[in-house]
């Protein structure tokens, strides 16, 4: 069973933290098509969180097409989530990133510089893809 966690000091609104955790878990294959997300009541009792917050997160995930809610049964991960990738792709991308990171640290960059560089390049590539 998938378990949510909540970081009260991250500055990210609680509902968005839940949305991001599901997105990430689907992306990394921890959640697979057909898996059931915790019932609202289960999530509420684990996290001591407002039920409306969980409901809001599930509504957003449903709008994104990642999950579907079946009345009386729960909320399930959809059959072909657009964002999912194969474990082979995941492993190979991860390896590539590790190699790059080792080179960056060897070149004397610290974590902040690495993050800044990554963000800048990510933004640039995204713009290119859109254009």
């Amino acid at each position: 069973m998938f378990v949510f966690r909540l970081d009260s000091h991250s500055g990210v609104p609680p509902y968005l933290q839940l949305v991001q955790q599901v997105r990430q878990a689907v992306l990394l294959g921890f959640l697979r098509p057909g898996d059931r997300l915790p019932l609202i009541r289960e999530a509420v009792e684990t996290l001591a969180i407002n039920p409306n917050t969980v409901a809001k997160a599930y509504r957003q995930l449903e709008q994104e097409g990642l999950v579907n809610g079946r009345p009386g049964q729960g909320t399930f991960v959809n059959e072909t989530p657009a964002a999912a990738m194969s474990s082979a792709t995941y492993t190979s991308l991860r390896r590539g990133l590790e190699t790059w990171l080792r080179r960056a640290y060897a070149a004397g960059l610290d974590e902040q510089a690495v993050n800044a560089l990554f963000t800048a390049v990510a933004h640039q590539t995204k713009d290119e893809n859109v254009a």
């Binding site: 609202i40 009541r41 509420v44 009792e45 684990t46 001591a48 407002n50 039920p51």
Partner: peptide, 14 residues
């Protein structure tokens, strides 16, 4: 505190 809120929020959900 956490246990109190868990029960309270559970009642709100139910």
């Amino acid at each position: 505190r956490l246990e109190f809120l868990q029960v309270l929020m559970g009642a709100v959900a139910a």
